[in-house]
């Protein structure tokens, strides 16, 4: 009995230590180190977002002199669904590029999960990108690979064993309702279906965040709704979803958090649609 008591006391102490470390050094790393799940029935684990995205006064200017971002501050919690909107040239694309480590911020700090993206070394970028799933407006599928191969390719690239690929790809294709098209080539399926393949590929490595850059830009309205419904479904599975778009109707329809970028800063940030 005494032993059980001391074990519980030890567990509580570990919890407190975990809580402290999680705040100071990033929850995901801590979870890995301590093996603690944060979901103790005792409720000692705090409500700490384990994959938050944070921009602190991020500025970006290009060598040509163009100032794209003039000091962006934003915070996206783990499991949130966010629309990023703004006019052309407002800085949306630069924001995405910084998030994907395609460009380096001129100043400021970007934290994604346990990674300080502004200080990341080139060698670590691939491993960081594996935590993000990206969907592009132009799908970017490999034309010489079938639907199945396109999704499997994403897993091959990160060294997933073939056995796991064979098990996981059909399940993902099922999630995006493309199980019957696995043998088709991209040019044999519609734009909406291609975008769903791209979504399946983004999901292949089980990333924490899905970033969709104008995912409905090249497809008809009916298909757009289907893609957006899929993104909502993915969000409900616990993944953070960031959708960059300028489609007013979609943003209003889904009534999610909207971050408006204007003139290189966060112009508006509110929940419930853009133009209400």
């Amino acid at each position: 009995m005494r032993m059980l008591h001391s074990l519980r006391s030890f567990e509580r102490r570990i919890c407190r230590l975990s809580e402290f470390l999680a705040v100071t050094s990033g929850a995901r790393r801590l979870r890995f180190r301590t093996g603690y799940t944060f979901l103790s029935e005792k409720g000692c684990a705090p409500q700490i977002p384990i994959f938050m995205i944070e921009f602190r006064n991020v500025k970006k200017s290009y060598p040509t002199g163009t100032v794209a971002l003039k000091g962006v501050n934003l915070h996206i919690d783990d499991g949130e669904f966010v629309f990023i909107v703004g006019q052309s040239g407002a800085g949306k694309t630069t924001l995405m590029k910084l998030l994907l480590c395609e460009e380096k911020a001129t100043s400021g700090t970007i934290i994604v999960g346990d990674t300080n993206v502004t200080r990341i070394t080139n060698r670590k970028i691939p491993y960081y990108r594996r935590k993000l799933g990206v969907v592009f407006q132009d799908f970017r599928l490999l034309p010489n690979k079938t639907v199945y191969e396109n999704v499997a390719f994403a897993m091959q690239v990160v060294g997933t064993p073939n056995k796991m690929i064979r098990r996981r790809v059909p399940a993902i294709l099922n999630t995006v309702n493309l199980a019957d098209k696995h043998n088709s080539f991209p040019n044999e399926i519609s734009g909406g279906e291609q975008q769903r393949v791209a979504l399946a590929r983004a999901l292949a490595n089980n990333p924490s965040v899905i970033i969709a850059d104008e995912p409905t830009g090249n497809i008809d309205p009916q298909m757009s709704l289907e893609i957006m419904n899929l993104l909502v479904k993915i969000n409900k599975l616990g993944k953070t979803v960031i959708v960059v778009t300028h489609e007013q109707s979609l943003v209003d329809y889904y009534k999610q958090r909207v971050i408006m970028i204007g003139d290189g800063v966060v112009a508006e940030d509110h929940v419930g649609g853009m133009f209400e």
Partner: peptide, 11 residues
């Protein structure tokens, strides 16, 4: 695409 998915340089 490989780079976006997280392929390492040597891969």
């Amino acid at each position: 695409i490989m780079r976006y998915i997280g392929a390492t340089g040597w891969f």
